[in-house]
Design a binder for these strands. Structure first.
Length: 443
RNA sequence: GUGGGCGUAGCUCAGCUGGUUAGAGCAUUAGACUGUGGCUCUAAGGGUCGCGGGUUCGAAUCCCGUCGCUCACCCCA
């Protein structure tokens, strides 16, 4: 197969990460770890259990759950023929896969109500943009099998707890109810009728939305459309009694536990499966695409993919966007990048001096590591000065020197980098000395 | 899929209306009386100016194409 393009020169092609993907290089990992670790802590704290599902699934799972006429399904999925008659798709989101697993293993029969969390890559074939990639990462939860409005609130509190723990200031919680399968169609028709009266005043895009996705018109940024939708009825006036009661309980509980929110009647969702509560957490530092978390209740999804009729609620945090927001906040406060999360500085750097003593040093290195103290070593045969520079740069606390002089006496010299103080001791005492000052760590 | 911006050393960029061997800062490496870091100083390495074509005596600089990146739109995390 010849895949060489015209511009490529023979033997001269530099491979690049595919469009819309990102390499996380050393130095950028700290924030990913911070976010991931904090997420795991909070999920544990709140009784969510990790679930890992494959990165690809039967294509039909997504078509049925997300909705056939959504952009995701129509043009954004990475779909492949797996064999003659099966088609697989790289997951564009994880709610459906989690539900699939829940049903496949009949977890609802063991215990109807269960709480899951997942962290992992998702795939959507879109034009890349700030904070939006083709392979992106989400961290999310699904609380499956209960209709209690307090559960909706719990999920919101899980998200805000994560952001609070990280110290991400400046996020906003927006919530809305989009009704259920009973009241939403009623509102949709009324809205459509009313908007049709103003059809000519709407922007071109919104005119096409009239048939495609009426609710999105409420969310349009065009000034004329905004003006028109300002006078449109609100979904809140058309909610059925059940949905009204649910929405009211959610808002009351949010107040009760002290989570400030903005009730936004124009908040809509792109995925078909949402019912009742929808919410979004956004961060003002982000610009055009400012959502860092989105979620809501989906009472019909499980039944839609062949399971019992039970309600669930969940969210997904967009990790790229969240990390951007954290960086923005840190830049503003001039705070260093989560230094204490960093495990990459070795405690000890061992300087090797010449071939004769190198083996001894290497042996010492492995003794130290065996005690779970982090240590590193020079393999480049560089000058002592150069090795010292490296030790300093990587942030080692101690530099151990074992040269011919020390070796002859069975000693080592340890330099304490912070104070420049040097101590000499027997080689056999090094471990005890280090362990007396530092507790072993696994990181 | 649509529209805007950009593409010069590893990174961030300078290079005016086209003119001799393309620059800086950071980073890297090496040295500053030779077994020692962080500061300072010195020096070195590193660029087919994304790629292809055109205009011109001459182009990183102008034109066209192409690829890539980026931002925004649709949509969405």
């Amino acid at each position: 197969m010849d895949v060489t393009t015209k511009t490529e020169k023979k033997n001269d092609y530099v491979f690049k990460a595919p469009r819309g993907t990102e390499d996380v290089l050393p130095g950028k990992w700290e924030l990913w770890r911070l976010l991931e670790n904090t997420g795991r802590q909070v999920f544990d704290l709140c009784g969510y259990y990790e679930i890992r599902t494959p990165v690809f699934e039967d294509t039909r799972l997504f078509v049925r759950s997300i909705g056939e006429v959504t952009d995701i399904v129509e043009k954004e999925m990475y779909t492949f023929a797996d064999s003659e008659d099966s088609s697989i798709t790289l997951r564009p989101e994880s709610t459906a896969p989690v539900m699939r697993a829940y049903l496949e293993y009949e977890l609802h029969k063991i215990k109807k109500f269960q709480k899951f969390y997942y962290i992992g890559p998702q795939f959507r074939k879109e034009r890349p943009q700030a904070g939006r990639l083709r392979q992106f990462h989400q961290m999310g939860i699904e609380a499956v099998g209960a209709n209690d409005p307090l559960l909706d609130v719990e999920t919101i509190s899980v998200a805000t707890r994560i952001f609070d723990r990280i110290g991400l200031e400046g996020y906003k919680v927006k919530i809305n109810s989009i009704g259920c399968e009973k009241c939403r169609p009623v509102f949709r028709n009324i809205l459509k009728e009313k908007l049709c009266e103003h059809e000519k005043g709407l922007c071109e895009l919104c005119q096409s939305r009239l048939n495609r996705n009426v609710f999105r018109i409420l969310d349009c940024k065009n000034e004329k459309c905004k003006a028109i939708s300002y006078h449109m009825p609100s979904i809140n006036d058309y909610l059925c009694v059940e949905c009204q009661v649910h929405a009211k309980s959610v808002r009351e509980a949010l107040l009760e536990i002290g989570i400030p929110y903005i009730a936004d009647a124009h908040l809509v969702r792109g995925l078909d499966y949402y019912t009742k509560t929808v919410y979004e957490i956004s961060h003002s530092s982000l610009g055009a695409r400012d959502a860092i978390c989105a979620g809501g209740r989906y009472d019909n999804l499980i039944a839609d993919i062949g399971g019992p009729s039970i309600g669930s609620v969940g969210f997904a945090i967009g990790m790229e966007a969240t990390i951007l927001a954290i960086e923005n906040v840190m830049a503003k406060k001039n705070k260093p990048v989560a230094q204490d999360m960093l495990c990459s500085s070795p405690l000890v750097y061992i300087i090797s001096m010449g071939e004769e003593t190198k083996k001894q040093s290497f042996h010492l290195l492995n003794m130290i590591r065996k005690s779970d103290l982090s240590a590193d070593f020079d393999y480049e045969g560089r000058s002592i000065k150069a090795q010292m520079r490296t030790a300093n740069k990587v942030g080692a606390k101690y530099v151990i020197m074992l040269g011919p002089d020390e070796s002859a006496r069975g000693d080592v010299k340890i330099k304490l980098m912070e104070t420049s103080e040097e101590v000499t001791m027997k080689q056999s005492d090094v471990l005890t000395w280090l362990l007396g000052r530092h507790t072993p760590s696994k990181c």
